[in-house]
């Protein structure tokens, strides 16, 4: 579905995706499990094309949590990659698998619902996700600049020390560039493109 906003071109932030990819490798990650949203898709494509990383595409985000958690026990370094909407659906598994058994899992997640995210489909879960993480005592932080990206390996080690899920929220400015222009009305979904189902799919 066309974006309702005139976004920056992806090439503006291609270097940032490359830097995130390199930072993931610097973490020593050899397994990545993912379900993308539109902000994370270019990173997922990079991880999938990297022969040094076993990349697993999942059908639901909680699978990525569990796959990454299992890999922890072979001494492998793993990450779960998803959109904020996907993380919103994982709270039960994060609590009853990772919190109960104190298994660290490092998540790269798009920071949907931020001030510069004007997609209506992201507002409800985006703005409420961080309070939920606070309630679960799952640490999170923003990655908003190349300098922040360079600190991902440090954050990865810190996650293991925390023995619980730790979320790195990737900011819009990093992935999509600055918001440009004034909001314009999104075209109404049609039956041909799946109606509400297509809206949800396009936001992931």
């Amino acid at each position: 579905m066309p974006s309702p906003l005139p976004l920056s071109s992806q090439t503006d932030t291609a270097d940032n995706y490359a830097a995130i990819h390199e930072a993931v490798k610097a973490c020593g990650v050899t397994l990545a499990a993912s379900l993308p949203d539109d902000w994370m898709a270019p990173l997922v494509n990079r991880l999938a094309a990297d022969p040094s990383i076993t990349h697993v595409r999942v059908a639901r985000e909680s699978e990525a949590i569990a796959i990454a958690s299992g890999a922890f026990f072979t001494g492998a370094r793993s990450i779960a990659v998803m959109g904020a909407t996907g993380l919103f659906t994982c709270t039960g598994e994060l609590a009853t698998l990772n919190l109960r058994h104190q298994i660290p899992v490092f998540l790269l997640v798009s920071e949907r619902g931020s001030l510069d995210d004007h997609r209506i489909y992201q507002e409800v879960q985006g703005r409420r996700l961080k309070p939920i993480l606070d309630a679960l005592d799952f640490p999170y932080f923003r990655i908003a600049s190349p300098g922040d990206v360079a600190r991902l390996p440090e954050a990865y080690e810190w996650c293991r020390l925390q023995k619980r899920p730790v979320v790195a929220f990737l900011a819009r400015t990093l992935l999509k560039g600055k918001l440009k222009g004034k909001p314009v009305a999104a075209p109404a979904p049609t039956r041909a493109d799946g109606g509400a189902g297509a809206e949800r799919g396009s936001s992931r």
Binding site: L31, V58, R100
Partner: peptide, 23 residues
């Protein structure tokens, strides 16, 4: 054995992560 005491439905996903990264 790892007895998963939560995350009903995700033991098989956990095992997939183990299987794919076994030394």
């Amino acid at each position: 054995t790892f007895y998963m005491h939560g995350a009903m439905g995700f033991a098989s996903s956990f095992a997939l992560g183990v299987a794919l990264t076994m030394p």
